[in-house]
Design a protein around this nucleic acid. Sequence first.
DNA 1: GGTAGAATAGACCAACCTGTCTGTTTATTT
DNA 2: AAATAAACAGACAGGTTGGTCTATTCTACC
Lengths: 196, 196
Amino acid sequence: MPPSKKQHLISCARRLFESEGFHTTGIDRILEEAGVAKMTLYNNFGSKDMLIVAVLNDTSQDMLNRLSASVTHINDPYEQILGIFDALAQWHDSDDFCGCMFQAAVAEFPDPESEPAKAAQSHLLRLTELFYGLCIRAELDDARTLSSMLAMIASGANCTARQIRTDLPAKHARQIAEILLERACSRPLSSSTIAN
Amino acid sequence: MPPSKKQHLISCARRLFESEGFHTTGIDRILEEAGVAKMTLYNNFGSKDMLIVAVLNDTSQDMLNRLSASVTHINDPYEQILGIFDALAQWHDSDDFCGCMFQAAVAEFPDPESEPAKAAQSHLLRLTELFYGLCIRAELDDARTLSSMLAMIASGANCTARQIRTDLPAKHARQIAEILLERACSRPLSSSTIAN
DNA sequence: GGTAGAATAGACCAACCTGTCTGTTTATTT
DNA sequence: AAATAAACAGACAGGTTGGTCTATTCTACC
């Protein structure tokens, strides 16, 4: 009935994985929630792990799209970077926030060679890339280092927010970002910048 | 043979949980590794979840002890704070580093009322408290906010390090901490500091 | 040396898990 | 209206899990 069973399965699985974790959410729970037969799942995805990968990729794209969209109306790229953290705060403040799915994925799939772990890792890279693009547009010094730092702060805000359940970490992250940006306008971040 | 079976069980379980996760590590794996009978485990801990809690508490104490110990030889409390991040970098650089166990715990036990989740949360509080004590001793402004920020940055470094597997995130975290401390010497971090 | 408490091995259980298979029903297309 | 493909319900298999129980052995202590 909905545009595609496949997409419907992904979004139901996403909701369950977010709120209950990957391992603890059984296939049957997902099928029941989605109102879909077991064979539909296995015909479309092949295995539970591959469903997880599909969910991670879908969520990554959705999340990066939202973050980008939330700052397009801002002109100054400098302010755009700060806007990302505002969007983060808004996310953390919403009722259904229950932590960053990609951090959960690396925790539940410790083998870095596993497909879910790789999907989670590539999300982090894409997020860093998003910051990098904005840093370049803002003509900031040392964009490579700076964007790594911003991504790291965002990760810190995500996992801290999961625990204390307020938007305070994101607000703190924004303050820190502001300080970093201020400094990156004039002088380099460190005299001996480490490679990569 | 070792001081106590209980402690031996905890440290074996710790190693396995760290490298393979909580849910994926079965009871039997732990027993085999520890060379201990199943009933010994259940007599001492009652359940797998309670073993996990014991491991988390033990690890928390061990980790905070190590961090504190790594900076006791430094006189200046300002430098002590930075020393914490050096210790973090050293940890991340070691071969057996495979991420922060407490972040893994909150990911694998999404229910914040569950005992493992509570144990993980209280570790974060203790870490923040450690920073707070150092901030006070360094006579820095806005110690409450600052220590929250430092703990958040440390968390960000932890989870980023898990993914890219270098000590670079911790080094970046140290740089950021340095900037924050520098500013906290003179003026408050924000005119309108948010409560708590 | 006898006794009490802990630790042992290992069988056992019920529940749950992912994944497969089958036969039927529903939609879509021509 | 016929044919093709997808989705369906549900039984089934094989394996694993956390946890219990029992009967035996080890280890101290008095």
